[in-house]
């Protein structure tokens, strides 16, 4: 089985330790949601994997071989990031051509389809494209490269809602046609929550959650009811947070004691991935660093 393995990776910038011992394995044919608060090091991790940065310590391997200065490994990894790495005076068609040369392959048929779906003018110079269209060009490249691991760092930056919707559809279509690994780092959690099958959360420089998305969704519950009853029912489990409204208490937990019957007057609702993420990564009062 193909796997991209990150072991104990650390990276600092100046005096700031961004990554502090990251351990995560990306396997083939999965779509990962890589989540974390601003500045937590998601982009740094992706750049380390793509050899654009060097780690202070730790290892990143693709099928057992280090990805550092490893052209064969890097040819199987593609990172789409916020930067536009192509010269501004070049045309869209040139980007497709150069990508084909660099990666030794390019899905021309899919590119033509996406160009028509998103109404991209391939004769336009990159400098003349809007933010949204620059993103679309980069996305087309990301979906058409022959790589096994496609890392998407904030893939829908500047895209309007209809184009985001279309992109998610096209992503699912190409993923079904040619299963490969996608790692999606994004803040638009709700939009990707039903696309991903594995969720990885980074906090304080380490991976604090790495779980099947369905299982995670099933775990997150919001319990609402009379305060004493809710507290009593949840007495033995970890509660992430509670909010009180008069005598009513809402409690968020990943460990609802489903083996016990739900007391009368108490309701249980699901937490979506976004709520889960907010509750899981909520800083303790006063401990938030600026």
């Amino acid at each position: 089985m193909t796997e991209l393995k990150v072991t104990n990776v650390a990276k600092h910038f100046g005096r700031k330790n961004v990554l502090n011992g990251i351990n995560v394995t990306f396997t083939d044919g999965q779509i990962y949601g890589l989540l974390g608060r601003n500045g937590v090091g998601k982009s740094t991790l992706l750049r380390l994997i793509n050899n654009r940065l060097l780690a202070d310590r730790g290892q990143i391997t693709l099928d057992g071989a280090s990805v550092v200065d490893n052209e064969a490994a890097q040819n199987r990894i593609f990172l789409m990031s916020a930067e536009m790495l192509y010269p501004a005076e070049q045309k869209v068609s040139w980007v497709f051509k150069i990508t084909k040369q660099l990666y030794g392959g390019f899905d021309d048929a899919l590119a033509a389809h996406l160009v028509s779906v998103f109404h991209v003018d391939t004769t336009s110079r990159l400098s003349r494209l809007s933010t949204g269209y620059k993103t679309l060009v980069k996305l087309i490249v990301a979906l058409c490269v022959p790589c096994d691991f496609v890392l998407l760092d904030e893939p829908v930056l500047g895209l309007d809602a209809p184009n985001r919707h279309l992109f998610y559809q096209e992503l699912m279509a190409t993923f079904t046609d040619r299963p490969r690994t996608f790692v999606i780092a994004t803040h638009l959690i709700e939009e990707i929550s039903q696309l991903v099958n594995q969720v990885v959360v980074i906090e304080r420089g380490v991976v604090t959650l790495d779980q099947d998305a369905d299982e995670l969704r099933q775990r997150g519950k919001m319990i609402t009811g009379p305060a004493a009853t809710v507290r009593d029912w949840l007495a033995d489990v970890k509660v992430l947070r509670t909010t009180a409204l008069g005598g009513m208490l809402a409690a968020y937990t990943l460990d609802a004691p489903l083996e016990k019957p739900l007391p009368a007057g108490v309701t249980m609702e699901a937490m979506n991935l976004q709520q889960l993420f907010i509750e899981l990564t909520r800083e303790e009062e006063g401990s938030h660093e600026s």
Partner: peptide, 18 residues
């Protein structure tokens, strides 16, 4: 097909198959 459903509703094909 799984593909049609995954694409149309933007669902992970593994979820559809399940």
């Amino acid at each position: 097909s799984t593909t049609q459903v995954a694409r149309e509703y933007q669902l992970n094909p593994a979820t559809v198959l399940k």
